[in-house]
């Protein structure tokens, strides 16, 4: 894994994207590419057409060669490549291509924040996916928190990956899990779910309260809720007394 030396005690604020101090350099050498990224690159190479592959090689070279500072014009060249990835390589490969570009460019926290803030939803998702590969400390947490404030399930799902599992504080992590249940993001998406949920009595309480609220309203309790509750170690919910007799499903049992 590549990593940068920042270990800020406090996650930087939302305005940190305006600073231009590069904290981290780009990937030092091809040898520094993590195996997961190398595998992804190999898979892409196999899947892409010749034109798209040539474009990607060129774009990766531009990304690896750039200076990590605010561009003089509206965008640096590799950022243009980052933006146009979908139409150059096909929308189905945009996430993977953008991840490779971010890895090659190795943007520091300030640049990463700017790329996220100026990105489309698809570009923001790519930044979120890249966080565990690019940032070792909690400095990028504001991006995760921003994504978790949205109601866009693509962003919520991307936000609850390994980076959040490692760095998100307990309160925000619990709310992230609950938000997944609310918005229909599968909890399979939540990285480190079993480890972080284990013996989390506060999460168990929140889940039970939510189940109660759903039951009181005559609405089904999401199956995922029972799964997470089980992971906390709390006994499964018995039939809630307040559930109307016309309770819609047997999921409460």
């Amino acid at each position: 894994m590549t990593h940068h030396p920042t270990h800020s005690a406090h996650p930087h604020g939302n305005d940190a994207g305006l600073t231009t101090t590069p904290v981290r350099g780009r990937a030092e050498s091809p040898g520094a590419v993590p195996p997961a990224i190398a595998t992804l690159h190999a898979r892409l190479d196999a899947a892409l057409s010749g034109d798209a592959r040539a474009w990607l090689d060129q774009a990766l070279a531009e990304a690896a060669g750039h200076q990590d500072e605010a561009p003089e014009g509206p965008l640096s060249l590799w950022e243009v490549r980052f933006a146009e990835a979908g139409r150059r390589c096909g929308p189905e490969y945009a996430d993977a291509v953008r991840l490779l570009l971010l890895q090659a460019a190795g943007p520091g926290p300030a640049t990463l924040s700017r790329i996220y803030a100026q990105g489309t939803a698809a570009e923001r998702r790519a930044v979120l996916h890249a966080l565990p590969h690019l940032v070792t400390g909690p400095a990028a947490l504001p991006l995760v928190e921003d994504a978790l404030r949205t109601n866009d399930t693509r962003l919520v799902a991307a936000a609850v990956g390994p980076y959040a599992a490692e760095h998100l504080d307990a309160h925000n992590w619990r709310h992230a899990v609950l938000k997944c249940l609310f918005t229909g993001v599968s909890v399979d998406t939540v990285a480190g779910l079993a480890e972080r949920a284990r013996a989390d009595t506060e999460l168990a309480r929140m889940l039970a309260d939510y189940a109660n609220e759903r039951t009181a309203a005559g609405r089904p309790v999401p199956e995922d809720l029972h799964r997470v509750l089980c992971l906390t170690g709390r006994p499964a919910l018995s039939t809630t007394p307040s559930a109307p007799s016309t309770a819609p499903t047997g999921e409460e049992s």
């Binding site: 799902a157 229909g184 609405r219």
Partner: peptide, 15 residues
């Protein structure tokens, strides 16, 4: 990415 149990616009599965 996820729609298996309603979503943020549909505001949850209907009663």
């Amino acid at each position: 990415d996820a729609t298996h149990e309603g979503n943020s616009i549909l505001r949850g599965t209907p009663k």
